[in-house]
Amino acid sequence: MAEAVAVGADRESLGGRLRDIGFWADWAAVIGLVALVIVFGLASPSFLTLGNIQAMLVSAAILIVLAVGQTFVIATSGIDLSIASIMTFGAVVLGLLYAAGWPILLACLVGVVAAGLAGVINGTLVAKGRIPDFVVTLGMFSAASGAALILSDGKPTQVVDGFLLALASGSVGPFGYFIVVAAVVVVVAHVALFHTRFGVHVLATGGNAEGARAMGIRTGRVRLAVYLISGVLAGVGAILLVSRVGAAEPAINTTYLLNAIAAVVLGGVSLQGGRGNILGPVVGALLLTALTNGLTLLGISQYYQPLAVGVVVVMAALLMRYQR
């Protein structure tokens, strides 16, 4: 989170900073998460039990992986509207190969490669074709879900496999494998964005593409790379998705798309690009998951849940305008 904070000479008192709306804007996701934890913790005694926290982390894992992929794209001032469709596509490829008798690990690998290829197509069209990100990925959103429907003939493929079931329900100590996978993705992404030359180039491309080019950064390649990352992470999400639901389904998963973008926005990443951080979107993903989980625990009708998500996202975006 700290990387997102534009630091000023701020040694004012705590009270002074609490009156400063910029403080709230910088920490919007964390504050939102803490507020939710307090409200739900008070309202439902089950919310803060170890079991529920584990369940929430497991169910946030797919969203975290997708949000990290989305963060790289948004940091270059792009947007990947196709991320959830590509995940569906990767899942269907995985499922069909498994049904055709391939070993599960190979099927998973090819699923990730297929998703990565879809990302490369996005990146090539954006970088070489000079078509706006929004248009390219909107097209891919439709094309990838169409490809998934064609390949699968619209039918779910059951993937009942010991390895994937172990991935879904096994754990290292208190942490399920899903959480471990998400944590590895987050750490690698954080290092890549903040401790490598590639990361600098990503942020430079998003912040000022012309300036970056003048400095000798090949912005076309950077854009290609972020869409490849987004595609590959959608493929990782596909493995988690298939392992969680035990089937590869050609469903469009729009909730994942919207929540992946919402998590990035909640995390304080500017849609204009140039500013990015990894932990913010992770907190955003946790916030969105905690919101649905808490409403479920309280027995509030599922009709209210999309409304609550919408209100939270827009409020966060409003607060973000005061970011320093």
Binding site: T49, S59, R244, A251, T255, T292, N293, T296, L297
Partner: peptide, 24 residues
């Protein structure tokens, strides 16, 4: 307590809901 998925395509959401009530 009756809980339902968002729609009949919301497979993961339904799983999350069962996990959530299971801890209660």
């Amino acid at each position: 307590t009756v809980q339902a998925a968002q729609s009949t395509a919301d497979t993961t959401g339904q799983a999350d809901k069962l996990s959530a009530v299971a801890v209660q």
